[in-house]
Design a protein around this nucleic acid. Sequence first.
DNA 1: GTTAGCACTCCTAAAAGCTGAGTGCTAACA
DNA 2: TGTTAGCACTCAGCTTTTAGGAGTGCTAAC
Lengths: 342, 342
Amino acid sequence: MLLDDRKLKILQAIIRNYLETGEPVGSRTISKFADLNLSSATIRNEMADLEEMGYILQPHTSAGRIPSDKGYRLYVDTMMEEKTREIEELKETLLKKADKIDKVLKEAAKVLAQNTNYASMISAPSYIRNKLKFIQLSKVDQHQLLAVIVVEGNVIKNHILKITDQLDDETLLKLNILLNTHLNGLSIEEINLSMIHRLKQQAGTYSAIVSEVIEAVGEAIKADEDLEIYTSGATNILKYPELADHQKASELITTFEEKQLLTELVNENKDKETGSTGIQVYIGNETPIESMKDCSIVTATYELDEGMRGTIGIVGPKRMDYDKVVGVLKSLKSQLEDIYRK
Amino acid sequence: MLLDDRKLKILQAIIRNYLETGEPVGSRTISKFADLNLSSATIRNEMADLEEMGYILQPHTSAGRIPSDKGYRLYVDTMMEEKTREIEELKETLLKKADKIDKVLKEAAKVLAQNTNYASMISAPSYIRNKLKFIQLSKVDQHQLLAVIVVEGNVIKNHILKITDQLDDETLLKLNILLNTHLNGLSIEEINLSMIHRLKQQAGTYSAIVSEVIEAVGEAIKADEDLEIYTSGATNILKYPELADHQKASELITTFEEKQLLTELVNENKDKETGSTGIQVYIGNETPIESMKDCSIVTATYELDEGMRGTIGIVGPKRMDYDKVVGVLKSLKSQLEDIYRK
DNA sequence: GTTAGCACTCCTAAAAGCTGAGTGCTAACA
DNA sequence: TGTTAGCACTCAGCTTTTAGGAGTGCTAAC
C-alpha cells in the first residue's frame, strides 16, 4: 500500500492533535480539521489503512487512534515544521554566571526544564583525548604536600599527599622540574611503565612521592569516568498521566536522581555522528535506557572546542512537542557554544 | 485529665501499630495487644479521653484513630526504645572511598536512603571561621595563570586568571612571596581594605593580578554560601500513600532536587544547640520547610573538627520508624566522625 | 471514490447497593 | 466505681449496575 499525500496529511493531523490532548483522536475530529474536506467515514477508511501500515494504533476497539513509535518517527523525520523560538532570558542568566561552568550548566538545565515542562539533563563537556598540561607540587604544611594537576582544557585536579620526611624547598623545586619536563604534553597512553620506572629512579629517595603523583595524574586524565551530569525538572514527568503511574514514575525519577544511567545516553551520543544539526531523537523503544522505554528523548551535542563535547537532553512523554524541543535545544546548544568558544 | 500509665500504654500501642501499617487503628486491635487485658469497650473509653487530650485523632467518624503531631512528639520525647542497630556495610563502603569527601557523602546519602526507605540528605561540612592557609600562583601557559588557594581544613579552590603581559619566573616568585607573607593565617575579617591597598602598592604593575587573587580568596573562604548538599532516595516518598498524592509528592521531590530549600534545615541546625546527642526531630508543622509539613524530619549534626559541621537528615512520613532512624543516624554520625577526625 | 446511516463495541462516569470496621452509648456486673 | 457485653448507628470503600457517548466497521446508495 502506498502512503499517498492524503494519508500523510491525515497522519499528521492525528499526531498534531494527539500531541496537544494526549487523548486518542477519532475520525470525526480529523474530518473537522480545515484543509481536507472529507467526511468522517472516509477518514475512517484511511485510518484503517494507516493502522494496517503500522503508523497508528487503537488502544482498544471503539477508541480513537494514537500514533505508534513508527508514526512518531515518520513525523520527526519528515513532517516537523521547524520553529525558531528564542529563549532570551536564558542567555542573560547564562552570561551572568559565565565564570563557573558547573553553575552555568546547572542553571541551564533548570531553565530548560521550566521552559519545556519536561525533564532535562546536561552533561559537562569532557575531553576525548586528554593531555597533561602542567603539574605543581607545593608544601601545605609539615606533613602534607599539595599536587595540582592541570589537564588540557584547564581541568584542574587537586591531590593532597602525606609525607613523613621533611622536604626542603630545593628538593621540591627539583621534583617539580623533574615531573614537568618528563610528563607535560603527554596523554595517558604515553605515560607507560618504563617512563614511570625511569622517573622513579631519578627521584631517588622520593620515588614514593612520584608514584603517588603519577597515580593522581592518571585519575585526573580519565576524569570522564565519573562524568558530571546535571539534571532538573524530573518531577515534570508526573504531569503526564501516561507516565505518572507510581511504579514507572518512581523508576524514571530515580534514574534522574542517580544520574548513573544517564551516562549511557551521553556515551551513545559521543561516538555517533549526529549529522549537521547534532540533534538525536529516540522514540520509545529506541532509547538506550530501559526505564525510559515509554518516553521520548531528544538530545543535542554541543562542542566547545575541538573534541570537548557535552550532551544536552530532554526526556518527556512520547507525545512531546518535538518542534519546540528541537528548537529550544538548538538555541541552547548554540548559546553554550557562543559563550565558551574562544 | 491525667495521662496515667494505662493511657500511656494505649497511646504507645496505637502509635506502634500505626507506624507499621499506616492505617487508622481501632479499639479491637489494641485490646488484642498482649499485656493489657482490657476489652475493646474499655479501650474505646480511653481512646475517647486521649482524643479529647489531643494525642490522637479520627480521620472521620467510624474510623480508627491515628496519632496527632502532639502524640508523635510525646512518643519521640519519652516513649522510644533506643535500638542500636549497625550498618556495617556502610562503614566498609565509606572507608574504601575515604579520600574524596564528596564521594563519601554521596555514597552515605545513598546507603542511608536504601537502609531506611526514606529520603536522605547530607550537607558537606563547612567551616564556620575559615583561615587562609596558603596561596600558590603558577603559569599555565603564555596567557593564563593558575591561582591555587588552600583554606584551613584543606579545602582547595582553583582559579584561572588571564594575563596580557608576560610574567617572568622571578616576578612570579616575588608575587607568590608577597601574597603568602601578608595573607597566610588570616581570616576573612582580617583582610581589609587598607591591607589590600598596601598589597597592591607593593605589587606595582601587577596590582591587577593581586586584586583578582584576593577576590578569589574571598570566594574560597565564604564557600559555605553555596553549601554542597547531597540527597538520595527522594522517590522513596512515593512509597507512602499519605505522601504520594501527585501535587504534594511533586513539590517534595522538587525540594530535594533543587536542594536550595534544604539549606534552611542545615542553617536551622547550625546555630541550635542540639544537646548531647546532636539529634533533632521535627514533626509535621514543626518543620522549617513549608513543603514538608506533612512529613517528619530527623537530623543529626556531625562535627569533624572544631567548628567544622555538617548535617545529616532523613525525611519521611510522620509515621516513620523513629527508633530505627535515630539509631541509623547516630551510627552514621559517629562513623563519619571516626573516619575524618584526626 | 465518497458518504450517510446504522448496529455494535467498549470505555467512563455516575448511581446504587453492600459490607465491615469501628464508634458511642447504655445497662448490667464485680 | 471501674469494666464489660451488647446493640444501633455511621461511613469509607468496594462491587455491581446502569446509562451515556464516543468511536468503529460495514453496507448500500450516490
